[in-house]
């Protein structure tokens, strides 16, 4: 049974550095989620975790398993691709929902609907 402590020194340094850096980026993103004052600013915070954090930690995982099992294991790429493709959809939908709700309540400082009222068809 192989263990993470069996890694050679260069791989261990790489794996540790990438993991800690990725976790730090995810933590910074969450701090942003906590600190920002308006919803539209908070919308930017999770993208830190989903781009930087996921990329770095998945790379660390790929290196770790590739060295330990001495064969290339790429299935972490699935997580990277999946998260990179799906998070924009969630955030776009949330942004649109927030815009819709703020417009219904006629909040201040929210851009109005761009389209002019529909014109009557000409007889």
């Amino acid at each position: 049974m192989s263990h993470v402590t069996d890694l050679p020194v260069w791989a261990a340094i790489l794996v540790c550095g990438l993991t800690v850096l990725g976790a730090a980026i995810a933590l910074i993103g969450s701090v942003g989620l906590l600190r920002f004052t308006s919803f539209y600013e908070r919308l930017h915070a999770p993208t830190l975790a989903t781009s930087g954090g996921v990329l770095l930690i998945c790379t660390a995982s790929i290196i770790c398993f590739a060295v330990l099992q001495s064969r290339w294991v790429f299935h972490e790429i699935l997580i990277i691709v999946f998260v990179l493709v799906t998070t924009p959809m969630t955030l776009m939908l949330l942004g649109q929902a927030a815009l819709y709700r703020d417009r219904v309540e006629e909040k201040h400082g929210v851009p109005l609907k761009q389209r002019p009222p529909r014109e009557e068809p000409v007889e």
């Binding site: 930017h44 993208t47 781009s51 930087g52 990179l84 998070t87 924009p88 955030l91 776009m92 942004g95």
Partner: peptide, 8 residues
Amino acid sequence: TATPGTAW
């Protein structure tokens, strides 16, 4: 949307 800093 994927790049931090801009949101569609």
